[in-house]
Lab assay of single mutants.
Amino acid sequence: TCPLCKTELNIGSKDPPNFNTCTECKNQVCNLCGFNPTPHLTEIQEWLCLNCQTQRA
C-alpha cells in the first residue's frame, strides 16, 4: 500500500504499475502521491513523493 494515501499498489500485477519509487527517500508511493518535478530535464530521471517534494519546496 501507498504510505501516503493507502492505495493498493499493484506490485506483481500484469497491469502497468500504478506506483513508482521516490528517488529521494526510496519509498514506493502510488502515482497520485508522487511525480517528476522536472519533466523538461530528460538527463535527470527524478521522481519525488509528495513528502520529499514538500520538503524541497
Rank of each mutant, 00 (worst) to 15 (best):
T1I: 10
T1G: 05
T1F: 04
T1W: 03
C2A: 00
C2Q: 00
C2K: 01
C2H: 01
C2V: 00
C2L: 00
L4R: 09
L4P: 01
K6F: 10
K6Y: 06
T7E: 13
E8I: 07
E8R: 05
L9G: 10
N10I: 09
N10P: 11
N10S: 09
I11Q: 13
I11S: 10
I11T: 08
I11N: 12
G12D: 15
G12N: 02
S13P: 09
S13Y: 05
S13A: 03
S13C: 03
K14Y: 02
K14I: 02
K14A: 09
K14E: 05
D15M: 09
P16L: 08
P17V: 03
P17R: 08
P17E: 14
N18I: 03
N18M: 01
F19Y: 12
F19R: 05
N20C: 08
N20L: 10
N20I: 07
T21N: 14
T21L: 08
T21Q: 06
C22N: 01
C22Q: 01
C22L: 01
T23H: 06
T23A: 14
T23Q: 03
E24N: 06
E24T: 12
C25N: 02
C25K: 01
C25G: 01
C25Y: 02
K26Y: 14
K26G: 14
N27M: 08
Q28K: 05
Q28V: 10
Q28H: 05
V29N: 06
V29L: 04
V29R: 07
C30F: 00
N31A: 14
N31E: 14
N31P: 08
L32T: 10
L32D: 10
L32Y: 05
L32R: 15
L32A: 14
C33V: 01
C33G: 02
C33E: 04
C33S: 02
C33R: 01
C33D: 04
G34E: 04
G34D: 09
F35Q: 15
F35H: 15
F35W: 04
F35T: 15
F35M: 15
F35A: 14
F35R: 15
N36C: 09
N36Q: 11
P37E: 14
P37I: 12
P37D: 15
T38S: 12
T38N: 02
P39L: 11
P39M: 09
P39T: 11
P39S: 13
P39N: 05
H40C: 12
L41A: 14
L41V: 12
L41Q: 11
L41T: 14
T42E: 07
T42H: 14
T42D: 10
T42K: 09
T42C: 13
E43H: 01
E43W: 08
E43M: 06
E43G: 11
I44S: 12
I44T: 04
Q45P: 07
E46P: 06
E46V: 10
E46W: 03
W47K: 08
W47M: 09
W47P: 10
L48K: 05
L48S: 09
L50V: 14
L50M: 02
L50K: 13
L50I: 06
N51L: 03
C52S: 01
C52G: 01
Q53I: 05
Q53V: 05
Q53P: 15
T54I: 03
Q55H: 04
